[in-house]
Simulated scan of single mutants.
Amino acid sequence: MVLTSVSNSTLAHDQVVADEVPLSFAKALLVQARAFGRDVDAVIQAAGFPINPLASDSVNDAVISVEQYSRLCLELFDVLQDESGGIIQGVPRLLARPEC
């Protein structure tokens, strides 16, 4: 996993970087997993992350790939059995997770 630090001066305010996601988004997913009593380390491992984004030494302005974020989202949906990520109660599991 490559963590890249992005300074505010690097990107124009309206510029979109479509292949990267802020690490803080991954942290938010893991906080949600923890709030539902799930094993965060197991979620991280199953999603293929080499580090724990919640670790205090994680770079705050780092970015991850869209693929890494997507794997983490899918893993959260899977462990919660909820495609809203636990945000909306009663959402059924509709998406099938591809077997790799």
Rank of each mutant, 00 (worst) to 15 (best):
K27R: 14
P92Q: 11
V59W: 00
R38S: 09
V63M: 10
L11R: 08
Q68L: 12
L11A: 07
E20I: 06
N52K: 04
G86S: 09
V63C: 05
S70V: 11
V6C: 04
I64A: 02
V63A: 08
A55K: 02
S56T: 12
D19F: 14
V59Q: 09
P50D: 09
Q89R: 13
E83D: 09
A18P: 06
P53Q: 03
G85S: 11
S9Q: 08
L3T: 06
V66I: 04
P50Q: 07
M1Q: 00
I64W: 01
V91G: 00
S56F: 06
P98T: 12
F77V: 08
A18D: 12
S58I: 04
Q32Y: 04
L72Q: 03
L72F: 05
V31T: 15
V63E: 04
G37H: 00
P22T: 03
V63G: 01
A28N: 14
I87E: 13
V16N: 02
A33C: 15
A47C: 07
S9G: 01
L80P: 00
M1Y: 00
L95M: 09
N8L: 14
Q45L: 08
Q32C: 14
I64C: 05
D41C: 01
Q32A: 15
C100T: 11
L76A: 12
S5V: 07
P92C: 13
S56K: 12
F36M: 06
I64E: 01
L94A: 13
Q15C: 08
V6Y: 06
P53N: 03
A47L: 08
F49I: 14
A12T: 12
A18N: 13
S56N: 11
K27N: 07
D39H: 11
G90C: 14
D82E: 05
V16K: 06
N8P: 05
V31Q: 15
Q81W: 00
D61L: 04
L80Y: 00
Q89E: 13
V21Y: 03
S70C: 10
A26T: 00
C73W: 06
F25M: 13
E99K: 15
L30T: 04
E83P: 00
D78R: 04
S24G: 04
E99M: 15
A47Y: 08
V17Y: 09
H13T: 06
